[in-house]
Design a binder for these strands. Structure first.
Lengths: 192, 192
DNA sequence: TTCTATTTGTGGACTGAGTCCAACAATTGC
DNA sequence: GCAATTGTTGGACTCAGTCCACAAATAGAA
């Protein structure tokens, strides 16, 4: 209910130009109610992304089971693409469009980084558990690098016009070199 | 002058627990004056980092000139390590310590991402100019991936105890696989 | 020295996000 | 019918960041 109101207002006035009060007024509720449904104004930008990201841990486990003796790097790569498959050319998340639209908007960047780091911790734990001890640096670096590449791809994808195609295509191309690099540098780790 | 006051207060109360008013009071100036010297409270966390980062464009050009016919990827790698050389085990920037200390602090994350993206744009332009047209995705993905790996390394470095050694060691290990991956996947681009 | 002009500091008012809380429906369960 | 839970509301509050008009202070020229 609040999502629809905010979507309208973001189109009319952009994210930064819209206040929580305006959103709640249009939705016919009070300002206080807003925070019963969203912890922050910026959460509105991420509903789609968060929904997709919610499937990432699951996809990670699935891919780990499915893949026989492939490396953890491959598992992450596959799980990432699986999550991206949910995003076709149609619905670009608000977060991406608004980011291109107004670059530096404080809250947007804060919310983006917090989500990024959450996923990074997930991947770090996953690969860290599958590489020996003393691999914190490699795990964390790989996690953040591969997710950054994916984020870069999402940005390019969003910037591209209507015929942008599927997100997974972009992400696949972007993360492949990163995965290749870590595969050859830290070889022979099973995912099972 | 404000830096010293803030450094004291951050130690006593952490970043999030310190208000601009407290900082300016201890420094003996008014709150309004604060914004004559810093655009945001979070800038205080980044003085060291920003100083180091200021040398990055320069290092990039230097490395591009020095290296004969190496790839743009190698140039970026070398320039990055050159910038990191400024950070020994002694002074860890506030941004890193406070990030470990209180994870998600809004302003901190926003300021971190804005800096990250600024450097990413820099690297994207650099490599993009040296790879043909139609390489936006690769350039951007490499830029963000290599910087994310470097950031991950900085985080691990900061988390490590007093005998952490030089930052460049960590960053070198973290970004090498990323560079290797992009070197082999997008070969043969000169840096000159 | 005296008169400007530019900088630098200051107070204060303002917006807007986010927090907290106490009061008040509305719903469910008995 | 009466609780207990849950959702909603208004309002007060803190703090970051913006804006502006005004008051030193300072520099440079006469």
């Amino acid at each position: 209910m609040l999502e629809e109101a905010s979507a309208e207002l973001f189109l009319e006035q952009t994210y930064a130009g819209t206040t929580i009060l305006q959103i709640t007024r249009r939705a016919g509720v009070s300002r206080a109610t807003f925070f019963n449904y969203f912890a922050a104004k910026s959460d509105l930008l991420w509903v789609d992304v968060d929904a997709g990201l919610a499937g990432f841990p699951v996809a990670l486990e699935e891919c780990a089971d499915a893949a026989g003796r492939t490396q953890a790097v491959d598992t992450v790569e596959r799980a990432l693409l699986q999550v991206c498959a949910a995003f076709g050319p149609g619905h670009v998340p608000w977060a991406l469009t608004q980011y291109e639209l107004m670059g530096t908007a404080g809250e947007l960047e804060a919310s983006a980084l917090s989500r990024f780091m959450a996923q990074a911790s997930l991947v770090t734990r996953f690969t860290g558990a599958r590489m020996g001890p003393g691999s914190e640096l490699a795990s964390r670096a790989f996690a953040m690098a591969v997710l950054a590449a994916a984020a870069a791809a999402a940005g390019v994808w969003a910037r591209t016009g209507v015929n942008r195609g599927a997100l997974a295509t972009y992400v696949g191309a972007a993360i492949a070199p990163v995965c290749a690099g870590y595969r050859s540098t830290h070889p022979g780790v099973d995912a099972g």
